[in-house]
Computed example of a mutant assay.
Amino acid sequence: MTAPGDDGASRAPQPAGVVESAAELAFEGALRPASFAEFVGQQKVRSQLDLLLRAAALQQRAPDHILLAGPPGLGKTTLALIVAEETGHPIRLTSGPALQHAGDLASVLSSLVPGEILFIDEIHRTARTAEEMLYLAMEDFRIDIMVGKGAGATSVPLELAPFTVVGATTRAGLLPTPLRDRFGFTAHLEFYADDELEKVVARAAGLLGLDVERAAIREIAKRSRGTPRIANRLLRRVRDVALVHDTPADLAAVQHALHVYDVDELGLDRLDRAVLEALIARFEGGPVGIRTLAVTVGEEAETVEAVVEPFLVRTGLIARTQRGRIATPAAYAHLGYARPGAATGGNVPLDGV
Protein backbone atom coordinates (compact mmCIF):
# COMPACT_ATOMS: atom_id res chain seq x y z
CA MET A 1 0.00 0.00 0.00
CA THR A 2 1.29 3.44 -0.86
CA ALA A 3 2.31 5.66 2.03
CA PRO A 4 -0.64 7.76 3.23
CA GLY A 5 -1.00 11.35 2.10
CA ASP A 6 -2.25 14.33 4.06
CA ASP A 7 -5.54 15.67 2.71
CA GLY A 8 -5.71 19.43 2.49
CA ALA A 9 -2.53 19.91 4.48
CA SER A 10 -1.50 23.02 2.57
CA ARG A 11 -4.49 24.92 3.94
CA ALA A 12 -5.08 23.20 7.24
CA PRO A 13 -5.44 25.58 10.19
CA GLN A 14 -2.54 25.07 12.58
CA PRO A 15 -0.99 26.85 15.57
CA ALA A 16 1.45 29.65 14.78
CA GLY A 17 5.02 28.40 14.53
CA VAL A 18 4.03 24.86 13.57
CA VAL A 19 5.51 24.05 10.17
CA GLU A 20 4.42 21.11 8.01
CA SER A 21 7.29 18.62 7.78
CA ALA A 22 8.03 14.99 7.02
CA ALA A 23 8.12 14.36 10.77
CA GLU A 24 4.62 15.84 11.18
CA LEU A 25 3.28 13.68 8.34
CA ALA A 26 4.89 10.56 9.80
CA PHE A 27 3.40 11.40 13.19
CA GLU A 28 -0.11 11.79 11.78
CA GLY A 29 0.27 8.67 9.66
CA ALA A 30 1.21 6.61 12.71
CA LEU A 31 -2.01 7.69 14.43
CA ARG A 32 -4.34 6.92 11.52
CA PRO A 33 -7.06 4.36 12.34
CA ALA A 34 -6.88 1.23 10.19
CA SER A 35 -10.59 0.30 10.28
CA PHE A 36 -14.04 1.79 10.71
CA ALA A 37 -14.12 0.35 14.23
CA GLU A 38 -11.04 2.39 15.22
CA PHE A 39 -12.21 5.58 13.50
CA VAL A 40 -13.67 8.08 15.97
CA GLY A 41 -16.55 10.35 14.94
CA GLN A 42 -18.38 10.75 11.61
CA GLN A 43 -20.75 7.98 12.68
CA LYS A 44 -23.24 8.53 9.85
CA VAL A 45 -20.57 8.59 7.14
CA ARG A 46 -18.90 5.47 8.56
CA SER A 47 -22.14 3.50 8.56
CA GLN A 48 -22.96 4.63 5.01
CA LEU A 49 -19.53 3.66 3.72
CA ASP A 50 -19.64 0.32 5.51
CA LEU A 51 -23.00 -0.48 3.90
CA LEU A 52 -21.74 0.54 0.45
CA LEU A 53 -18.64 -1.66 0.72
CA ARG A 54 -20.53 -4.65 2.08
CA ALA A 55 -23.07 -4.48 -0.77
CA ALA A 56 -20.27 -4.31 -3.36
CA ALA A 57 -18.53 -7.31 -1.78
CA LEU A 58 -21.73 -9.38 -1.86
CA GLN A 59 -22.17 -8.55 -5.55
CA GLN A 60 -18.46 -9.19 -6.26
CA ARG A 61 -17.96 -5.84 -7.97
CA ALA A 62 -15.92 -2.70 -7.46
CA PRO A 63 -17.62 -0.25 -5.05
CA ASP A 64 -19.22 2.87 -6.49
CA HIS A 65 -17.03 5.94 -6.78
CA ILE A 66 -16.90 7.91 -3.52
CA LEU A 67 -16.57 11.66 -2.96
CA LEU A 68 -15.46 12.85 0.49
CA ALA A 69 -16.15 16.54 1.06
CA GLY A 70 -15.30 18.67 4.06
CA PRO A 71 -12.75 21.00 5.67
CA PRO A 72 -9.11 19.92 6.03
CA GLY A 73 -8.10 17.60 8.85
CA LEU A 74 -11.38 15.73 9.38
CA GLY A 75 -10.22 12.36 8.05
CA LYS A 76 -10.80 12.21 4.29
CA THR A 77 -7.46 10.56 3.53
CA THR A 78 -7.87 8.22 6.49
CA LEU A 79 -11.31 7.11 5.27
CA ALA A 80 -9.89 6.46 1.79
CA LEU A 81 -7.18 4.24 3.31
CA ILE A 82 -9.81 2.42 5.36
CA VAL A 83 -11.91 1.83 2.21
CA ALA A 84 -8.89 0.15 0.63
CA GLU A 85 -8.25 -1.87 3.77
CA GLU A 86 -11.86 -3.02 4.04
CA THR A 87 -12.03 -4.06 0.38
CA GLY A 88 -8.65 -5.79 0.50
CA HIS A 89 -7.44 -3.95 -2.61
CA PRO A 90 -4.38 -1.73 -3.08
CA ILE A 91 -4.69 2.03 -3.14
CA ARG A 92 -3.00 4.55 -5.44
CA LEU A 93 -2.68 8.08 -4.05
CA THR A 94 -2.41 11.20 -6.18
CA SER A 95 -3.80 14.73 -6.14
CA GLY A 96 -5.64 17.14 -8.41
CA PRO A 97 -2.68 19.53 -8.81
CA ALA A 98 -0.54 16.59 -9.99
CA LEU A 99 -2.99 15.80 -12.81
CA GLN A 100 -2.39 18.80 -15.06
CA HIS A 101 -2.44 16.93 -18.39
CA ALA A 102 -4.55 14.14 -19.82
CA GLY A 103 -1.38 12.10 -20.26
CA ASP A 104 -0.69 12.27 -16.51
CA LEU A 105 -4.07 10.72 -15.77
CA ALA A 106 -3.83 8.20 -18.61
CA SER A 107 -0.57 6.80 -17.24
CA VAL A 108 -2.14 6.35 -13.81
CA LEU A 109 -5.39 4.80 -15.07
CA SER A 110 -3.72 2.39 -17.48
CA SER A 111 -1.58 0.91 -14.69
CA LEU A 112 -4.44 0.22 -12.24
CA VAL A 113 -5.12 -3.41 -11.32
CA PRO A 114 -8.69 -4.77 -11.01
CA GLY A 115 -10.46 -3.43 -7.92
CA GLU A 116 -7.74 -0.89 -7.10
CA ILE A 117 -8.71 2.28 -5.24
CA LEU A 118 -7.60 5.54 -6.87
CA PHE A 119 -7.53 8.31 -4.27
CA ILE A 120 -7.43 11.84 -5.73
CA ASP A 121 -6.89 14.49 -3.07
CA GLU A 122 -8.09 18.05 -3.81
CA ILE A 123 -9.88 16.64 -6.84
CA HIS A 124 -11.45 20.03 -7.61
CA ARG A 125 -7.98 21.25 -8.68
CA THR A 126 -7.63 18.68 -11.48
CA ALA A 127 -6.95 20.25 -14.90
CA ARG A 128 -9.89 20.43 -17.30
CA THR A 129 -8.33 18.11 -19.90
CA ALA A 130 -7.68 15.45 -17.28
CA GLU A 131 -11.21 15.90 -15.88
CA GLU A 132 -12.77 15.17 -19.25
CA MET A 133 -10.77 11.94 -19.52
CA LEU A 134 -11.78 11.03 -15.96
CA TYR A 135 -15.50 11.33 -16.84
CA LEU A 136 -15.25 8.53 -19.40
CA ALA A 137 -12.97 6.41 -17.24
CA MET A 138 -15.29 6.55 -14.22
CA GLU A 139 -18.42 5.80 -16.24
CA ASP A 140 -17.31 3.25 -18.85
CA PHE A 141 -13.89 2.10 -17.56
CA ARG A 142 -12.15 3.13 -20.74
CA ILE A 143 -10.18 6.06 -22.09
CA ASP A 144 -9.41 7.30 -25.58
CA ILE A 145 -5.74 7.78 -26.42
CA MET A 146 -4.87 10.15 -29.26
CA VAL A 147 -2.15 8.80 -31.56
CA GLY A 148 -0.44 11.12 -33.99
CA LYS A 149 -0.94 14.82 -34.60
CA GLY A 150 -2.94 17.08 -36.88
CA ALA A 151 -5.19 15.64 -39.60
CA GLY A 152 -3.63 12.19 -39.24
CA ALA A 153 -4.39 11.84 -35.54
CA THR A 154 -6.54 8.89 -34.54
CA SER A 155 -8.31 7.95 -31.31
CA VAL A 156 -7.48 4.52 -29.88
CA PRO A 157 -9.82 3.22 -27.14
CA LEU A 158 -8.14 1.59 -24.14
CA GLU A 159 -10.16 -0.63 -21.84
CA LEU A 160 -9.47 -0.24 -18.11
CA ALA A 161 -9.77 -2.70 -15.25
CA PRO A 162 -12.73 -1.90 -12.94
CA PHE A 163 -11.58 0.47 -10.22
CA THR A 164 -13.01 2.86 -7.63
CA VAL A 165 -12.23 6.56 -7.47
CA VAL A 166 -12.24 8.08 -4.00
CA GLY A 167 -12.08 11.85 -4.40
CA ALA A 168 -11.45 14.29 -1.57
CA THR A 169 -12.24 17.98 -1.72
CA THR A 170 -12.28 20.88 0.67
CA ARG A 171 -14.36 22.94 -1.77
CA ALA A 172 -17.14 20.80 -3.20
CA GLY A 173 -18.75 23.81 -4.86
CA LEU A 174 -15.81 24.05 -7.27
CA LEU A 175 -16.40 20.56 -8.68
CA PRO A 176 -17.99 20.66 -12.14
CA THR A 177 -21.42 19.05 -12.25
CA PRO A 178 -20.47 16.30 -14.77
CA LEU A 179 -17.70 15.11 -12.42
CA ARG A 180 -19.80 15.36 -9.27
CA ASP A 181 -22.62 13.35 -10.90
CA ARG A 182 -20.31 10.41 -11.59
CA PHE A 183 -19.81 9.69 -7.90
CA GLY A 184 -22.22 7.08 -6.62
CA PHE A 185 -21.89 8.30 -3.03
CA THR A 186 -21.01 11.70 -1.59
CA ALA A 187 -20.09 12.03 2.08
CA HIS A 188 -20.01 15.40 3.83
CA LEU A 189 -17.70 15.33 6.85
CA GLU A 190 -18.63 17.52 9.81
CA PHE A 191 -16.50 19.18 12.48
CA TYR A 192 -16.07 17.11 15.64
CA ALA A 193 -17.71 17.74 18.98
CA ASP A 194 -15.45 18.18 22.01
CA ASP A 195 -16.35 14.76 23.44
CA GLU A 196 -15.34 13.09 20.16
CA LEU A 197 -12.07 14.98 20.12
CA GLU A 198 -11.40 13.82 23.67
CA LYS A 199 -11.58 10.24 22.38
CA VAL A 200 -9.23 11.14 19.52
CA VAL A 201 -6.69 12.67 21.92
CA ALA A 202 -6.97 9.80 24.42
CA ARG A 203 -6.41 7.25 21.64
CA ALA A 204 -3.41 9.16 20.26
CA ALA A 205 -1.92 9.55 23.74
CA GLY A 206 -2.21 5.80 24.26
CA LEU A 207 -0.45 5.06 20.97
CA LEU A 208 2.31 7.49 21.92
CA GLY A 209 2.67 5.97 25.38
CA LEU A 210 1.89 9.34 26.95
CA ASP A 211 0.03 9.45 30.27
CA VAL A 212 -2.27 12.49 29.96
CA GLU A 213 -4.73 13.35 32.70
CA ARG A 214 -8.41 13.74 31.87
CA ALA A 215 -8.50 17.51 32.45
CA ALA A 216 -5.55 17.97 30.07
CA ILE A 217 -7.26 15.88 27.38
CA ARG A 218 -10.40 17.98 27.77
CA GLU A 219 -8.39 21.19 27.41
CA ILE A 220 -6.67 20.00 24.22
CA ALA A 221 -10.01 18.97 22.72
CA LYS A 222 -11.57 22.33 23.56
CA ARG A 223 -8.83 24.22 21.70
CA SER A 224 -8.66 21.97 18.61
CA ARG A 225 -11.21 23.82 16.45
CA GLY A 226 -13.29 20.67 15.97
CA THR A 227 -10.46 19.09 13.94
CA PRO A 228 -8.68 15.81 14.81
CA ARG A 229 -5.52 16.76 12.92
CA ILE A 230 -5.10 19.87 15.07
CA ALA A 231 -5.87 17.88 18.22
CA ASN A 232 -3.06 15.44 17.39
CA ARG A 233 -0.61 18.26 16.71
CA LEU A 234 -1.47 20.05 19.94
CA LEU A 235 -0.93 16.76 21.77
CA ARG A 236 2.53 16.55 20.23
CA ARG A 237 3.34 20.06 21.45
CA VAL A 238 2.23 19.05 24.95
CA ARG A 239 4.45 15.98 24.76
CA ASP A 240 7.38 18.26 23.82
CA VAL A 241 6.80 20.47 26.86
CA ALA A 242 6.47 17.49 29.18
CA LEU A 243 9.67 15.96 27.77
CA VAL A 244 11.80 19.12 27.81
CA HIS A 245 10.70 20.28 31.26
CA ASP A 246 10.45 16.76 32.70
CA THR A 247 6.90 17.32 33.93
CA PRO A 248 3.74 15.21 33.76
CA ALA A 249 1.35 15.84 30.86
CA ASP A 250 -1.19 17.54 33.09
CA LEU A 251 -3.40 20.59 32.69
CA ALA A 252 -0.56 22.96 33.56
CA ALA A 253 1.63 21.43 30.84
CA VAL A 254 -1.18 21.81 28.30
CA GLN A 255 -1.77 25.44 29.20
CA HIS A 256 1.96 26.18 29.05
CA ALA A 257 2.40 24.46 25.68
CA LEU A 258 -0.55 26.21 24.10
CA HIS A 259 0.60 29.56 25.47
CA VAL A 260 4.04 29.02 23.92
CA TYR A 261 2.48 28.22 20.55
CA ASP A 262 -0.03 31.12 20.68
CA VAL A 263 -3.18 29.01 20.86
CA ASP A 264 -5.76 30.68 23.09
CA GLU A 265 -8.74 29.22 24.96
CA LEU A 266 -10.97 29.29 21.86
CA GLY A 267 -8.33 27.71 19.65
CA LEU A 268 -7.44 30.98 17.90
CA ASP A 269 -3.83 31.31 16.77
CA ARG A 270 -1.72 34.35 15.97
CA LEU A 271 -3.22 34.95 12.51
CA ASP A 272 -6.80 34.58 13.74
CA ARG A 273 -6.25 37.19 16.43
CA ALA A 274 -4.39 39.47 14.01
CA VAL A 275 -7.43 39.49 11.72
CA LEU A 276 -9.77 40.26 14.62
CA GLU A 277 -7.42 42.95 15.96
CA ALA A 278 -7.28 44.60 12.53
CA LEU A 279 -11.04 44.43 12.11
CA ILE A 280 -11.72 46.02 15.51
CA ALA A 281 -8.76 48.37 16.09
CA ARG A 282 -8.06 49.51 12.52
CA PHE A 283 -11.55 49.43 11.00
CA GLU A 284 -13.77 50.05 14.05
CA GLY A 285 -15.43 46.65 13.71
CA GLY A 286 -16.14 46.89 9.98
CA PRO A 287 -17.61 46.36 7.54
CA VAL A 288 -14.41 45.78 5.58
CA GLY A 289 -13.55 43.68 2.51
CA ILE A 290 -11.56 40.47 2.80
CA ARG A 291 -8.77 41.75 0.55
CA THR A 292 -8.29 44.85 2.67
CA LEU A 293 -8.15 42.70 5.80
CA ALA A 294 -5.58 40.41 4.18
CA VAL A 295 -3.31 43.30 3.18
CA THR A 296 -3.55 44.73 6.69
CA VAL A 297 -2.30 41.51 8.33
CA GLY A 298 0.24 40.78 5.59
CA GLU A 299 -1.36 37.60 4.26
CA GLU A 300 -2.83 36.46 0.95
CA ALA A 301 -6.57 37.07 0.60
CA GLU A 302 -7.09 33.38 -0.24
CA THR A 303 -5.39 32.33 3.01
CA VAL A 304 -7.57 34.61 5.12
CA GLU A 305 -10.73 33.54 3.29
CA ALA A 306 -10.04 29.79 3.22
CA VAL A 307 -8.18 29.25 6.52
CA VAL A 308 -9.03 32.03 8.97
CA GLU A 309 -12.52 33.22 8.12
CA PRO A 310 -14.46 29.91 8.25
CA PHE A 311 -13.45 29.26 11.86
CA LEU A 312 -14.11 32.84 12.97
CA VAL A 313 -17.56 32.75 11.34
CA ARG A 314 -18.33 29.34 12.82
CA THR A 315 -17.44 30.52 16.32
CA GLY A 316 -19.50 33.69 15.92
CA LEU A 317 -16.58 36.13 16.11
CA ILE A 318 -17.14 37.72 12.71
CA ALA A 319 -20.09 37.91 10.34
CA ARG A 320 -20.29 38.29 6.58
CA THR A 321 -22.43 41.13 5.27
CA GLN A 322 -23.20 42.65 1.88
CA ARG A 323 -20.72 45.44 2.64
CA GLY A 324 -17.95 43.26 4.08
CA ARG A 325 -16.90 41.50 7.28
CA ILE A 326 -17.90 42.82 10.70
CA ALA A 327 -16.78 41.97 14.21
CA THR A 328 -19.49 40.59 16.51
CA PRO A 329 -19.95 41.46 20.21
CA ALA A 330 -18.26 38.12 21.01
CA ALA A 331 -15.10 39.27 19.20
CA TYR A 332 -14.95 42.48 21.23
CA ALA A 333 -15.41 40.49 24.45
CA HIS A 334 -12.80 37.88 23.50
CA LEU A 335 -10.10 40.48 22.77
CA GLY A 336 -11.10 42.69 25.69
CA TYR A 337 -12.28 45.68 23.67
CA ALA A 338 -15.18 47.90 24.65
CA ARG A 339 -17.90 47.65 22.04
CA PRO A 340 -18.94 50.97 20.43
CA GLY A 341 -22.43 52.10 21.42
CA ALA A 342 -23.59 53.03 17.91
CA ALA A 343 -24.42 50.15 15.55
CA THR A 344 -23.02 50.27 12.03
CA GLY A 345 -25.70 50.37 9.35
CA GLY A 346 -26.14 47.60 6.87
CA ASN A 347 -24.53 44.87 8.99
CA VAL A 348 -27.12 42.19 8.38
CA PRO A 349 -25.29 38.80 8.16
CA LEU A 350 -25.51 37.27 4.72
CA ASP A 351 -23.87 33.91 4.05
CA GLY A 352 -21.81 33.39 0.93
CA VAL A 353 -20.80 37.04 0.37
Rank of each mutant, 00 (worst) to 15 (best):
A3I: 14
A3E: 14
A12H: 07
P15L: 09
V19H: 13
E20Q: 15
L25G: 10
L25R: 11
F27W: 06
A30P: 04
V40R: 03
V45Q: 03
S47F: 12
L49T: 08
L51Y: 15
A56C: 11
A57S: 11
A57M: 05
L58E: 12
R61G: 14
D64N: 05
P71M: 13
G75I: 12
K76R: 14
L81H: 13
L81A: 15
L81G: 12
I82H: 02
V83Y: 04
E86I: 02
T87A: 03
T87H: 07
G88A: 12
P90S: 11
P90M: 05
S95E: 11
A98T: 11
Q100I: 14
V108D: 01
V108W: 01
L109H: 07
S110V: 09
L112R: 03
E116N: 07
E122F: 09
A127I: 04
A130L: 06
M133G: 13
L134H: 11
M138N: 10
F141N: 13
R142P: 06
V147L: 15
G150I: 01
A151M: 12
T154S: 08
V156N: 10
P157D: 11
A161W: 05
P162Y: 09
V166R: 00
A168W: 02
R171H: 15
G173Y: 03
P178Q: 07
R180Q: 11
R182L: 10
R182P: 07
G184R: 12
T186V: 15
A187I: 12
L189P: 04
L197M: 00
K199L: 06
R203L: 06
A205D: 05
G206C: 01
L207E: 13
V212R: 01
R218D: 07
S224H: 04
T227I: 00
I230P: 01
L235G: 01
D240R: 09
V241I: 09
A249E: 02
A252L: 05
H256V: 04
H256F: 09
L258I: 10
L258N: 00
Y261L: 13
E265D: 15
L266W: 09
D269E: 02
R273T: 09
R273N: 03
V275M: 08
L279W: 03
E284N: 09
E284D: 15
G285E: 14
V288T: 10
V295D: 12
V297K: 04
T303N: 06
V304S: 06
E305Q: 15
A306G: 03
V308L: 13
V308N: 03
E309W: 06
P310K: 07
G316R: 06
G316M: 05
P329T: 14
Y332I: 01
Y332P: 10
G336Q: 08
Y337K: 02
G345M: 05
L350I: 11
L350H: 13
L350E: 07
V353F: 14
